[in-house]
Design a protein around this nucleic acid. Structure first.
Lengths: 411, 411
DNA sequence: CCACTTTTGTCGAGAGTCAATAGAAGTATG
DNA sequence: CATACTTCTATTGACTCTCGACAAAAGTGG
């Protein structure tokens, strides 16, 4: 029933991580450990349906790869206590990179997708890929020496960029705000310096993936919205991240809204959501009322300070966003909408505006179980997502199977 | 969950054959025949990467199940001529049912998903499931005797209903226009009369699936829109039909549009697309101009006759629809939008209105390769889709594997 | 009619998996 | 503290499945 190939390009939610009974290699056994839990061999045999002897074969392979190992013994349940086996989270590293309009964030994550070491630096996107990727690699090297690890320990690289990406090749596709990056082959560049799998995706998509796996609820259908300097969204539908035909799915910033009549957007169209409700536009609206607000942070601070006009403006932005989200709910019928990005720090006021419109416009069927909330991860959302997707690909059954074959050939 | 193409690519190619260690059973071999083409054994061995002897084992199983057989011998290419093996399209039957607001259509399809015998009758939906399903079964029996086949020949039932469905269980979920059908277990009902797999889905979803497989172009991301008495859509994204959390995805009829201000919809909200651009509303708009138009057919006929006001009204409906579709394009980035339903017979005029708005509002990236066209299948679209989805499930690797095991147990 | 090509049927070797059995390491009990 | 019992781990031979080789069959072309 599930499309196996699609699992490649997405991170399944924990409850979907099942092993197909009967035929399963070392790669599929590994999947059982990805939740971070330790298991006894008997446990695993029951889970996979394999004979313990067969299972042992797989475990040997994974142990030789250094990915799993014994952890503390479990408590006896009346007989010999089980040896507990688990993923060794520090066995390898994931290099996560979040490229923003004006910043570069780099992190080293362990195999639990938790960023362990983190660094960032301001950049100028138009310096082009060569300069910026070099800077990213430099930061990575710094982190590596801080972590006392080496480049060889990096098993995969996950990178988020602020624009559409051809996911299969890892090339940015006509990114509006990334001059010089169009079709630049990012994975190829990394392969010259690292022997690792490289995954590139749109940053909002990565934030969506990162957010998704943070809660255990039904998250096969949800929408992540980033509201900051721009407005974008990542769509997870049917359990899979949706990228669309050209990788531009989720581009809600340029949907027309009612309050946008007569307001022109930098994209050349009239009445775009982004031309009305983005962080800079909220700030501008406040300046028009002689309130000092120049950045997204200013807006958030004003709201936090209880400034009435700022609260009003944010709530109105919420309504505007809600207009688009109401349509999205009709179209996609998600079970959750999560709001992230700098402006989402304005929390309840933004949500109030969104909810006001979405619950008014939405069909009862679609909205009765709909949750709308703010994101649980902040700046590091994209980094977490990047770690997760890179990890997922690097530890996919196919990838592990390939490594196992390699190992076998070497012996 | 449906993925015709992905199932195909799931057959290990020669170079992957070593990695996936021959886990392909009879079920996966069958998938190679679903395109309707005949293959020689050597062909198949090359395609699957299996040894011919192994392949033969699988073919024996499928032959015993009666699903495949020898067809005419192929031409010699310099040596012994190959025996060509193909799916036997008449081996089993698919029962396809399309339940509409006021009609019931039933068809018997062969394994190529082509409806062979077809019948229909008017119904009253509110008579409830028992009466109507009985009527459907009666029609099916009539067709069976006409086809000189029996109930046992039916391998699967595919049924489309005009409302949301919990796909996994086949139960309608709070369908607005189907009183008495809520949570009725349709598959269970059929199981009392037929030993067949039963698949139930929303009718527009089925039309989308039916349309999808009619053209060979990239159709992993496309949107099917039905415009008739109501307006709805079926979403195929990432190669899969999207149903959403409650099965109500694609419900574009109740998205608010600009021209809808002050117009109230039967759903209780203001300004819904359906309250402005549906068939009955177009007819009403024409009547307001003292033009005799009472049905969808009247509207289509007037347009065909070149009536200026009707053309204008249809084009305007296209613009209204385009407004919603422009947002959908931003959100989903499809490569195709297909318009079906009764009103789509008004063809180019409707399309012109849609294109006008979509291409104006859409981002260049998303619209440069976007095709917008009318459907190629008409009344039988849902029947074709129902056949296809039922067939796909009935002949899925898993289902075939199960049947093969059964067969083995019997021997 | 014979050499050559291509496809089809058969069978033993080898790889991989399983279930059984023996052994190890604990707990409960008198 | 010895014994019975429980639970987990290690090993091994039997069994199943798949592969590749080989031989036969059924054509073509000179």
């Amino acid at each position: 029933m599930l499309c196996f190939t699609d699992v490649m390009t997405n991170i399944p939610s924990p409850q979907n991580a099942q092993v197909s009974r009967g035929v399963s290699g070392a790669g599929e056994v590994l999947q059982l450990f990805l939740d971070g839990n330790a298991h006894s061999r008997t446990d695993l045999a029951a889970l996979t349906g394999m004979a313990r002897s067969t299972l042992q074969e797989r475990l040997d392979t994974l142990t030789q790869l250094g990915l799993i190992g014994l952890v503390q013994e479990g408590a006896s349940t009346g007989g010999r206590p089980p040896q507990r086996i688990a993923l060794l989270p520090e066995a390898r590293l994931i290099l996560a990179i979040d490229l923003g309009a004006s910043h570069l964030r780099v992190a080293l994550s362990n195999l639990a997708s938790v960023p362990q070491f983190q660094a960032q630096s301001p950049i100028v996107l138009s310096d082009g890929p060569e300069v910026i990727l070099q800077a990213a690699l430099k930061l990575a090297d710094d982190l590596l020496s801080k972590a006392k690890r080496q480049r060889d320990d990096i098993i995969a690289v996950g990178m988020g960029v602020p624009g559409p990406v051809i996911f299969d090749t890892g090339q940015p596709a006509n990114p509006p705000i990334m001059p010089g990056w169009d079709r630049f082959n990012i994975p190829e560049w990394f392969h010259q310096h690292l022997d690792a799998l490289v995954i590139v995706d749109n940053d909002v998509n990565l934030m969506a993936l990162g957010e998704r796996n943070q809660n255990d609820e039904d998250n096969d259908n949800f929408l992540f919205v980033k509201i900051a300097t721009g407005i974008g969204s990542g769509i997870i539908s049917g359990g899979l991240l949706q990228r669309g035909a050209q990788g531009t799915a989720g581009d809600i910033g340029h949907v027309r809204i009612r309050r946008g009549d007569g307001i022109f957007c930098h994209c050349g169209n009239e009445g775009c959501l982004e031309a009305v409700a983005s962080g800079p536009k909220i700030a501008q609206a406040l300046r028009d009322q002689d309130i000092e607000a120049h950045s997204n942070t200013d807006v958030v601070d004003l709201v936090a300070a209880g400034n009435i006009q700022a609260i009003h403006a944010v709530r109105q932005a919420g309504r505007d966003l809600g207009e688009v989200l109401a349509a999205s709910v009709s179209l996609l019928n998600p079970s959750q909408i999560v709001i992230g990005g700098r402006i989402s720090a304005a929390g309840e006021h933004l949500l109030a505006g969104i909810r006001e419109v979405v619950y008014q416009r939405g069909a009862p069927l679609s909205t009765q179980h709909l949750q709308i909330r703010t994101s649980r991860s902040w700046e590091d959302g994209a980094l977490r997502g990047a770690s997760m997707i890179a990890l997922h690909h690097a530890l996919s059954p196919q990838a592990i199977e390939a490594k196992a074959t390699e190992l076998l050939a070497a012996n």
